[in-house]
Nucleic acid binder design. Structure first.
Lengths: 363, 363
DNA sequence: TTGTATGCGTTATCAA
DNA sequence: TTGATAACGCATACAA
């Protein structure tokens, strides 16, 4: 049972001042190691530092922020934290922020527009110095961005970009990634390949498809329209597993011939593998499957998944650096550039792909 | 190229006051709907609210906090965010916080003690009103907790508890969970069961083992010491996959006979399944496997995993409610109780378990 | 029904 | 080398 708590009043700078026999101003200068600290007598410094430690003084961030106009926080706004895509990004963001002694204010919009906007409001009230938005699709319209740029809050998005806007972005190079995966399958001898394209809603879908088409064209690979499917739009980031499973089932039922499935993302790929395995088609012996993203579970799946890794941690870190650059530039009244960075993906070859065997998958 | 930004000065309450022709005090009363707002003329209210909206007034949270001593934030401190255990907890925490219009300040200790302490310091400087610590093992010693309780910051841990302390905790009922899983295997006819116990370091390990022993004793099930293994201590939450894999490999090499593996957690189970599958032992036909946690990937694995679900989202929500209760109690100078809650786990039966067949696993 | 004055804990400017 | 003072934006006690 907790007593009503005579909450030991926090010790303030004034306490340190009176206790040490100096003025608050001096205490402030010493404790912050301000420029003027050069002129403070060493003995004074020592006395102040000692009493500060003895009293357990801890600066009040709110007062400091009110005075200095710097909150030392940035907002990190996720569209949907349950997207497996997010965890490593968070780690990357957090790590870069920690280096800079900034704290992250965390928000998760649950894919809801009004929730997104409410969070944005709350973050602005708190005067976050920067904003990072993690999403892979887009429901935010222009007026939100206006708000941001009017208030001059350096912002970066991870996972999508707004054409010709003044908000920085960090994305994977989807076109290259798709090419890498397809090239891999092609080199393994696969020619009859199923393509499960991404939902129209997602910004990643088009460039990945473009990468596929370009490679196919260049290599003389024929894309059979009967083997091209497209995931439906959905708000649930984990629904693609289901879709991958169902689509593959249907192909098998239709007795389509193919030796490989190139799925839009890892979950789709895992769904496809599940369907193949259930139907008795061995992966990778009878059918190869590739994913995209390299989410945590891809390495652990059975068989482990050959996929295209998005450097998520690095993407998170880069987004922070971009925002920090904006913050510092504003502070020093410099100009700064909006950057739209495409990061290189990496092909991760695991156990779900193999050279095509003479005996193809006959359903 | 971003221009050096004549950052449009934020509009303050004073601006609204002068623009609307009233005093800052009146504006404050109206905009906060303070008790005194009862006495303000409707016309005045309207005028003030209109100009506030017209000017795009947004209260300055820092000033407000400085004055009111309430930060409307709570710190959420993870030992290791890459633990798959965390994502849903975060969702649960966030959701409950959102209801209460609180914001989460996010921190990830990377399993490092000094990082944990630094974050704690930063959170205290920001006067978080409460603290939630998510971890499944313990490196924090007493002085940290002293700090918390001296400052009377309501805190709750998720995933571990400190015996006889004054910090609330929310955990799954591990003993019950283990019993559920074993009971399930037992009812399916399994008698030669491999047990992979958790690392000594983890607080979950002992109660789960206790649950196993109690059930075994009650049911007259014999536990073969040769089939009992223990995961090594490790800081990497994903390392148990490897260990589960290796241990199972070794058992198979030693030609041990068993029809089921009860793994400490899902990743261990997936590792075991992988090893079994590789060795040609079919899961669940020849060997059943159970996990614990029900992390996101368990449903997607092939075969999908029978496991014991921790109600993580609910645990996150409950932790918030406990902390909120503490905050409100302090505000109203009431007493409040430290609670140590054990939440009920739920057996989730999927495809990795099956009634024992007459033809057992013969390596 | 509304306005004035004060202080929250800091930091920065100026004076001593 | 140090101290007094003001101001950041807001909320409240008190005055009008």
């Amino acid at each position: 049972m907790k007593r009503p708590s005579e909450k030991s009043q926090a010790v303030t700078m004034k306490d340190v001042a009176t206790q040490s026999g100096f003025s608050p101003a001096t205490v402030s200068i010493v404790l912050n190691n301000a420029p003027l600290a050069r002129y403070i007598a060493p003995a004074t410094k020592r006395r102040i530092e000692e009493t500060a430690k003895k009293l357990g003084y801890r600066p009040n961030a709110m007062a400091r922020f009110l005075r200095s106009k710097r909150s030392h926080s940035i907002g990190v706004l996720f569209f949907d934290i349950t997207d497996p895509f997010c965890t490593l990004i968070m780690r990357g963001v957090e790590n870069a922020l920690y280096q800079a002694s900034y704290l992250a204010i965390f928000a998760d919009a649950h894919n809801q527009r009004n929730r997104f906007e409410r969070y944005l409001e709350l973050l602005l009230e708190r005067h976050v110095e920067g904003l990072i938005v993690v999403a892979n699709w887009l429901f935010v319209d222009i007026h939100v961005l206006n708000d941001l740029s009017k208030r001059n809050i350096p912002s970066a998005t991870i996972g999508w970009e707004l054409a010709g806007d003044n908000i920085s972005s960090v994305m994977v190079d989807n076109e290259t990634g798709a090419r890498l995966a397809l090239e891999h399958l092609y080199q393994l001898g696969h020619r009859k390949i199923v393509f499960i394209r991404g939902p129209k809603m997602l910004i990643d879908s088009a460039p990945r498809w473009r990468g596929i088409q370009k490679f196919a064209h260049g290599a003389g690979l024929e894309i059979d329209p009967g083997l091209v499917l497209q995931l439906p739009d959905s708000l649930d980031p984990n629904s693609s597993f289901e879709s991958g499973h169902r689509y593959t089932d249907e192909l098998l039922e239709q007795k389509k011939k193919f030796t490989a499935v190139m799925a839009f993302d890892d979950l789709t790929a895992l769904g496809a593998i599940r369907a193949l395995t259930k139907a008795g088609v061995k992966v990778p012996e009878q059918c190869s499957v590739t994913g995209f993203d390299d989410v945590a579970l891809s390495a652990l799946a059975a068989p482990s998944l050959t996929t295209v890794r998005q450097p998520m941690e690095a993407m998170g870190g880069l987004a922070v650096n971009i925002v920090m650059e904006g913050i510092n530039a504003a502070l020093e009244k410099r100009e700064w550039n909006v950057v739209n960075q495409k990061m290189n993906p990496e092909l991760v070859i695991r156990d779900s792909t193999r050279a095509v065997s003479l005996a193809g998958a006959d359903d």
